[in-house]
């Protein structure tokens, strides 16, 4: 009696259809139905940002979106950030600046930082910190993360010159 919901989306540039229960979050759909396990579940209540994806151009916590709500949406997950084996400048900068330790927060931070740098070429440090305020990291102390985003911003500008 409890029907499933048919969702049609575009994920990382590809048309993707799936069936989900109305109560399943987009995060659960990505991880458990579609096998896209890059997005992490940290808190499951909107505080930590480990589940961050880009939904129709805006970053959101996928734990606070129902899969059913994503019908018709365009979604980018961490799996869609690199071009094949070519890392995104934000990913490279995270490695070079050692901006991760355990790595649980990293996918969410990279997706969030990528969205920022695509919207704003040269965000100030304060802007970066406020933009990433919904992404908690219990390991790094944030400084290295901010440096990495600054380095990526710099590199992306060089490329665009």
């Amino acid at each position: 009696m409890h029907g499933k919901y048919h969702v049609r989306t575009t994920i990382n540039g590809e048309a993707v259809e799936f069936l989900c229960e109305p109560r399943q979050s987009l995060l659960e759909c990505l991880r458990d139905i579609l096998g896209l396990t890059g997005s992490k579940e940290g808190c499951n209540d909107g505080n930590c940002g480990a589940c961050t994806v880009i939904l129709d151009g805006r970053i959101v916590n996928s734990c606070l979106v129902l899969g059913a709500e994503a019908d018709g949406a365009d979604i980018t997950t961490i799996e869609g950030v690199a071009r094949g084996s070519r890392l995104h400048p934000v990913q490279r900068a995270f490695l070079e600046q050692a901006a991760l330790q355990c790595g649980v927060c990293t996918p969410g931070l990279i997706v969030a930082a990528k969205a920022l740098l695509e919207a704003e070429a040269q965000p100030s440090e304060e802007r970066i910190r406020f933009w990433l305020a919904n992404n908690l990291c219990r390991c790094t102390g944030y400084d290295k993360i901010v440096r990495a985003v600054q380095q990526a911003a710099h590199e992306m500008q060089e490329v665009n010159r």
Binding site: G46, T52, V60, N61, V65, A112, A133
Partner: peptide, 9 residues
Amino acid sequence: IGGTQIQGR
């Protein structure tokens, strides 16, 4: 309200 992700919704 919240952070960037929350403000998106």
